[in-house]
């Protein structure tokens, strides 16, 4: 990937941090396993493109990181990744500029890896996953935030009964009642196969709310449970994905998982409705209903 710095240069630029290995990369960020202030943390490097740097405006990347950090600071839900000890700082590594900060290091596999392996989760695992999502979305809603990028790759399954699943990456989170960070007002943020239908509406800014996260969370649970994303045929960037999102009704989850309780499958199906008003929006009520199942 173009923006990832040379490993040796990185180590040289951050002499107080013991960088163990490169972990993952996505969007404009790279993640490393590192020892920071004596404990293992996830070191995050966010690349700041130079053209942004020349502009008089504050670069979009910087604003996004600022928002992500503010958001993570505000949210106390255990199912959301926590910030680490390294405060954001600007570094020039090689010829490129980065913002460097840290988050807690979580030992676990992402749901996308499980899906790729053809893993078939139990009902209990899916139920716990949905409950984690509901708690996260409730917390985000209280803070007037929309995650906008809930997907299997952004969820880690941990070997910790208190935190069975943790949602990562608030990098493109949207703050309601706040100014927009995205410079191009027509850009729809998110990962296509997990974006809700309202994200493609002409007035999408007016349409998106916490129910968009509920949709993506349900879709992620659906895919985890069934191994199928109903909107993707072939590759994830297939041109038919978008029209499928806005037109098809996915097969009921019970079709793929007849071993699951019907009530659970119905909740997932209902949260994936195209019209936000058809998705149950009382999160507290949904949590109670799920716990009673």
């Amino acid at each position: 990937m173009e923006f990832k710095p040379d490993f040796e240069l990185l180590k040289k630029a951050l002499p107080d941090i013991k960088i163990i290995r490169f972990v993952a990369m996505g969007g404009y960020k790279a993640v490393y396993e590192a020892i920071i202030n004596g404990s293992k943390e996830a070191l995050k490097l966010a690349y700041i493109p130079r053209e942004d740097d020349r502009s008089e405006e504050v670069p979009e990347t910087l604003l996004r990181i600022k928002r992500e950090i503010e958001s993570l600071n505000r949210c106390k839900c255990p199912y959301l990744v926590k910030l680490g000890s390294l405060q954001p700082q600007k570094y020039t590594i090689g010829s490129r500029d980065y913002i460097v900060y840290s988050e807690e290091f979580l030992e676990g596999k992402s749901l996308s890896e499980f899906i790729k392996e053809g893993f078939k989760p139990t009902y209990d695992q899916c139920k716990r996953l949905l409950l984690c999502f509901l708690h996260v979305i409730k917390e985000l809603k209280m803070n007037k935030l929309i995650h906008r990028d809930i997907k299997p790759a952004n969820v880690l399954a941990l070997d910790d009964p208190d935190r069975p699943y943790v949602v990562l990456d608030l990098g493109i989170a949207f703050k309601l009642d706040s100014t927009t960070i995205t410079r191009n007002p027509d850009i729809r943020m998110g990962t296509l196969p997990y974006m809700p239908p309202e994200a493609f509406d002409v007035n999408f800014h007016q349409q998106i709310d916490f129910r968009s996260d509920l949709y993506s969370a349900a879709l992620t649970t659906y895919e985890y449970a069934s191994g199928i994303n109903p909107f993707v045929q072939g590759s994830r960037n297939d041109p038919t994905t978008l029209p499928r999102i806005t037109s098809i009704i996915p097969k009921p989850l019970i079709t793929y998982r007849p071993d699951f309780p019907e009530a659970f499958c119905q909740i997932i199906d209902q949260l994936m409705k195209r019209i936000p008003a058809l998705r149950p929006s009382n999160i507290e009520g949904l949590i109670k209903k799920m716990e009673a199942l």
């Binding site: 007016q206 916490f210 936000p276 008003a277 929006s281």
Partner: peptide
């Protein structure tokens, strides 16, 4: 759209 507002 009205229903969406109402239910949120």
């Amino acid at each position: 759209s009205f229903l969406s507002t109402l239910t949120a």
